[in-house]
């Protein structure tokens, strides 16, 4: 019997047992820190409350509002068509299915934009595309859409146009609420992202 066989057998066995000791748990996929920083310093992730109001009114199917406040706060007031994913359960596997669907824009909503921004950073780190933050959060929503201030005299024309739109939106979201309530009970169908398959290739 060749002694080398015995040595090689022992070596292979030791290496195989070694794999049990190394941690080969699948690591969370993340983007490069430089890439994340680049995206963070750009304000392109912010969407204004006016844009959101317009998208809700038009029934834009690509809009997916994700409310990151707690379930209690969500119960008290929430934007129509929004889904509640509290920040602490954001990276559950069930929650992650909401993000990264091609053709949808996920907009994070919170009271101000801090919690929403945190949610945005988390999803960006995980490499999801198409996530945004509603600038100013629900506080800003209240100030601009629900209770818009008339621009002072001498304001530019665009300010009046914005005001006119906000007044209309106010009607839509508050005044006309009683009439719309029946029709707005449309069941929202939430799209789930399909499980991504491995990279194609082969032998």
């Amino acid at each position: 019997m060749d002694r080398n066989y015995i040595y090689l057998t022992i070596l292979m066995l030791v290496l195989a047992i070694g794999t049990l000791l190394v941690n080969n748990e699948p690591k969370l996929k993340q983007i490069e820190p430089q890439q994340l920083l680049l995206e963070m310093v750009q304000p392109t992730r912010y969407v204004t409350t006016d844009q959101i109001a317009k998208m809700i009114i038009h029934g834009d199917p690509s809009l997916e509002l994700v409310d990151v406040r707690s379930a209690d706060e969500f119960e008290q007031f929430a934007l129509p068509r929004s889904v509640n994913i509290p920040l602490d359960s954001l990276i559950n596997s069930s929650s992650l299915g909401y993000f990264g669907i091609p053709g949808t824009k996920v907009v994070f909503v919170s009271n101000d934009d801090i919690a929403a921004d945190q949610a945005w950073v988390l999803t960006k780190r995980l490499g999801f595309k198409g996530t945004y933050v509603m600038r100013g959060g629900l506080n800003c929503w209240m100030e601009t859409i629900i209770n818009p201030q008339e621009p002072s005299e001498g304001s530019p024309n665009t300010a009046y146009e914005t005001y006119a739109f906000r007044k209309g939106a106010q009607q839509y979201f508050t005044g006309a609420k009683a009439e719309v309530a029946e029709g707005s009970k449309v069941k929202v169908e939430v799209q789930r992202r399909k499980k991504t398959s491995a990279v194609a290739g082969g032998c």
Binding site: V22, N24, P26, A198, G202
Partner: peptide
């Protein structure tokens, strides 16, 4: 088979190879 298998696990551990990106028939 066993050399490649054990080797790939170590490569993954050392960060030389992302096993999740490997094509699986």
């Amino acid at each position: 088979l066993i050399v490649a298998m054990v080797g790939l696990l170590y490569f993954d551990y050392f960060g030389w190879l992302d096993l999740s990106k490997i094509f699986i028939l």
